[in-house]
Nucleic acid binder design. Structure first.
Lengths: 236, 236
DNA sequence: AGAGGCTGCTTACGCCATAAACAGGTGGCA
DNA sequence: TGCCACCTGTTTATGGCGTAAGCAGCCTCT
């Protein structure tokens, strides 16, 4: 009746279509704005229709994370590597690529509860964990060495990439209101930036340097240093 | 009339009291459960009363973060240090202490938008950033060296501590339904775990090692390695 | 043709953040 | 003492949210 939409937009729903739309919406408007209702709107469908394919919002976010990591193992295996150093380099770059391609959604990978709660560094995708551990063992690591390496590696990735994507996301959900700020109801520090900055001469002076983005180089040197450290540890 | 509460619980509201209650509630029930309404309930007050002291939920979370970092600079300065290595060690341990004392709230420090958007590694508290930069410069770092060091240091802290607190928080908001599961006879879960695990022999084998918590030692060696790297870089 | 299963829609509930108007008390000042 | 202005917290209302439950149309298979 009221199908004003072209046929292309009225396609059948599917879990993949929903997850894709969710990821798109998250990247465009931020995680908070991605509601079941708005997502339904995006897909030309009522919110409740989505519940046929996802069991709830949590499950959907779970699926978005899984989708991000999809094909990761395949891509890593595609480029066969000779040393474990080269292998870890490849894994790191692969994940960095994912993070940079989805800067808003990437923090979900870290912030959501892990699939296996007992897995201490709780990166979600067990398939990936397995691949890393298996490869390290195949390269002669003992179990202990593999686990320690996995933990240090994970920690490095999370730290570097979270900071890096937070650069790219800064204003994604910033609401700017028209400034009819005649009277501040609350003793406000709206000018907290400037006030603090007046107290922070070094920050002020290095402002340019601080805001320059050298993430790439920093990531590379950090990664190299980490690999060196692991190498040193492994060879006693 | 309906003030059943003892006087002590009916004390005047204040921004500090609200922020403290918020932090407590977050640590106890998770960030999601901390609503204006529940917080009002905790304080024996209607939700709207809070808006006299806090301009909204976002502002409140902002204040919680600020509160976490409160006194940080004072404590760092209290223990006067001689070398920049010792200084950064002290800063790192101070922040780790904060993180471990407030494992559920700590991710807010990283995940909320920074006060100064142009500040690339967006740790929120400008006072702290200033202190680190000033100290490094006072120890002979050039501006470039100070900035690079600050970024690498921040990245390390965020990565290590986020992973560490996520260990301690795993089940904080987990909804446990009363399963009448008396003994461990029944092996099945959501079955997704076991299904994945069946495909992951290495993970399975190292399960014990993976779930052991050696965060402390890992943090120390990682930090030491980072400081060595910085030292090496700084001295050409 | 008829039956049953997909699929998506409608309605409804209880939660949330928050805007706006309001009331009770308390202090200052005559 | 009387009065008024303010500070504090409450009441009421709006619009959004996630999601439980039931319903209606269509597709396919017999």
């Amino acid at each position: 009746m009221s199908t004003d939409e072209p046929r292309s937009a009225r396609r059948r729903l599917s879990r993949d279509r929903i997850v894709d739309a969710a990821l798109t919406s998250i990247e465009e408007h931020g995680v908070d704005q991605m509601s079941m209702r708005s997502l339904g709107r995006d897909l030309g469908v009522e919110a409740m229709a989505l519940y046929r394919y996802v069991s709830g919002r949590e499950d959907l976010l779970e699926a978005v994370v899984a989708n991000l990591l999809n094909g990761f193992v395949e891509r890593v295996e595609a480029a066969e590597t000779t040393s474990w150093q080269e292998y870890l380099q490849h894994v790191a770059h692969e994940i960095r690529h994912i993070a940079l391609a989805n800067p808003t959604a990437f923090p979900l990978v870290v912030s959501r509860h892990p699939a296996a709660p007992w897995l201490r560094p709780p990166l979600r995708d067990i398939e990936m964990v397995e691949h890393v551990l298996a490869t390290l063992c195949a390269r002669g690591f003992t179990d202990d060495q593999a686990v320690d390496t996995y933990k240090a590696f994970t920690s490095f990735l999370v730290g570097s990439l979270l900071l890096e994507v937070s650069i790219k996301t800064e204003n994604i959900a910033a609401v700017e209101e028209p400034m009819n700020e005649g009277s501040a109801d609350i003793p406000e520090q709206d000018s907290s930036d400037d006030a603090d900055l007046a107290q922070a001469p070094h920050v002020l002076r290095m402002r340019d340097r601080l805001s320059q983005d050298h993430s790439e180089a920093e990531f590379e040197t950090g990664l190299e240093s980490l690999l060196n450290r692991i190498e040193h540890t492994v060879s006693h």
